[in-house]
Design a protein around this nucleic acid. Structure first.
Lengths: 341, 341
DNA sequence: AAGTTTTCCGTAAACGTTTACGACAACACA
DNA sequence: TGTGTTGTCGTAAACGTTTACGGAAAACTT
């Protein structure tokens, strides 16, 4: 059923070497011969077997993304990742590379799966997300010399890999600036559990801005929870029980914010009126909610496209002779003013 | 860097054939030899190269899922698919099979990509979703004899492939029954555009139930839109402009329902009080919203697991000697009573 | 017309596995 | 001792490509 390059060669009375060269656009093949091969390939609808090609080339022409649930949680953060993956896939497809999304079960930090994937060479490179400040996955990959890129920064692995991140620090700081300008002094922040790097950066910006406004940092103004709706729901009441109640809350994420707002409403407070709410990472969820939340919005699809480019350029095998460029970028988040602050 | 089976053999002073047999658990190898091989493999941390294995075995040990945007839309329906894929992946992983999610760009109906994937034999089988009543993808796959399974039924392709679906017809009918029992007679329905099969089934159930209650079917009580928030938002006002205003609306999807509720609120109507709202497919979104919507909820993760089983059992190569069983199942949706009806 | 370059193509090895086949030794049985 | 059986292993071919190498013919050069 599947026609091989041999069938094609036999059909044309030509050697398989020539067929392969014709198909791969090499220079040393007669123009007319190439045309005949192309026509025949179309007619027999031949398409090269990936496995054979992979084996010979030592590359799979595919890149893996590990979509993993938050530690301790069942959610994958999909509203965030799907647009990102769309961009990633689009750019990779331009280069004939497949994106392969592998999903981890809950609980494990993906390490075993990553190791298997790398050792079996199922993909040529991998894209990591949910980077932590110290990330064992990054340590592992740099140690074995497997190509990868990260969405998000980390302190692991030095500068040996491309990374693309959002400027959570600036967003955290801008959020505070904005709230202060609107008269708030008691500003709370809800960050993710664990040492996920973006939460760290967010809080760093938050504290820096507070300081610049001469506001003392109050630890009771910070709460940490799961990065989802129920995380925000559980954590917000604690914030409101502190002796000096906040007049504004910055959530690190719109899912958390939604949960937080639900809690606020149940406490008889109306977000956007009785208390200001700002969201740092606005995925699609904000759209579904009223009041519409003021937020910092990332350009998710371009983010995916760019990271694909950066990864490709970092790989000598694909980047061409001029070799591997390690690029690191940090992108701004766009402020979207809506009704909640 | 990557150790091959040759390295292992050399290290053990043994032939590669024996090493392979030992690793693959064949019978004709001495127990002690096998142990030595296993130990050495671990020590050199050898893991078989997938490409070589694929080529020789003629199989890739991976299955593709095509995650595609709705036609005419940018959304992927991810709140629905992510849990489904989690289940799918989990079950496949038990059999050492990788799930590879390929994402289609907007607009195309995935056909070109599907064809390329099949012809290059990048996967051993594929899982299809968003089945249509007549589905060219199904026609294509059955024609070329490529293994696949579908989430959702179709009229294409006969009974030659495993399929798993939800009982949208029953849910549509039950929704009407419930609303009628609560005193409603003017019941509207919002379905997806295009001939997606689940929308068809939903409406079929809806009409059947109306009939059984002696309610005449009124075409102006049905509206079709994109399967997302803005789809529901755009379509709902039209429904409310019909001469005899509905007192209840059944949305085919929670994203649509959210948009619909937003429209209703803007019209000064409170869902759950002034007008009843029921949702047929409840993904995670319902949780984020108030009033909490009464809905029919699918068991998404088990759905994925089951479909993986069914696909595997349908494939002679994997199912073992007893051969291919084609299973088709339809699962009920569970009614979750909340505050909106 | 002889030498030199260029153009084009065939040959065969290689990528890392799996597996059919046969070989050899050990053992059992007569 | 000869024959058959069993257990264990090595040999080599095969999977479908790509590509280094070399060679023959054609095209230039002088």
């Amino acid at each position: 059923m599947a026609s091989s390059i041999h069938d094609l060669a036999r059909h044309l009375n030509i050697s398989i070497g020539t067929v392969s060269r014709a198909l791969n656009g090499r220079a040393d093949v007669n123009a007319e011969t190439r045309q005949r091969v192309l026509d025949a390939a179309r007619k027999l609808n031949y398409s090269p077997n990936q496995s054979g090609r992979n084996l010979r080339r030592g590359a799979t022409q595919s890149i893996a993304f590990m979509l993993q649930p938050h530690p301790g949680d069942q959610q994958y953060g999909e509203p965030f990742f799907i647009p990102f993956l769309t961009g990633l896939q689009a750019k990779l497809a331009e280069h004939g590379i497949d994106l392969m999304v592998v999903m981890g079960g809950p609980g494990d930090y993906q390490h075993e799966r990553l190791r298997r994937l790398v050792e079996a060479r199922r993909a040529d490179a991998v894209v990591l997300a949910w980077t932590r400040r110290e990330d064992e996955r990054i340590d592992y990959l740099t140690e074995v010399g497997f190509p990868f890129a990260t969405l998000g920064r980390s302190q692991s692995g030095g500068r040996s890999y491309p990374s693309l991140d959002l400027d959570f620090e600036k967003a955290g700081s801008d959020a505070v600036d904005r709230l202060v300008a609107r008269g708030h002094r008691r500003i709370a922040a809800v960050r993710p559990l664990l040492n996920l790097n973006f939460g760290y950066l967010f809080i760093a910006g938050y504290r820096k801005a507070l300081k610049s406004h001469g506001i003392d940092f109050d630890p009771s103004m910070i709460a940490a929870g799961f990065i989802n709706e129920s995380g925000g729901y559980e954590v917000t009441p604690k914030l409101m029980q502190s002796k000096d109640v906040p007049t504004a809350i910055i959530f690190n994420n719109d899912a958390m914010a939604l949960g937080g707002c639900r809690a606020l409403v149940e406490m008889g407070l109306q977000p956007g009126k009785d208390i200001a709410v700002v969201v740092i990472v606005d995925t699609a969820l904000c759209r579904y909610f009223s009041p519409r939340l003021t937020s910092f919005r990332p350009a998710l699809e371009p983010l995916g496209q760019r990271l694909a480019e950066m990864l490709l350029e970092s790989m000598p095998a694909l980047a061409g002779p001029e070799g591997a460029k390690i690029i690191r970028e940090v992108w701004p988040l766009e402020l979207v003013v809506r009704d909640s602050d």
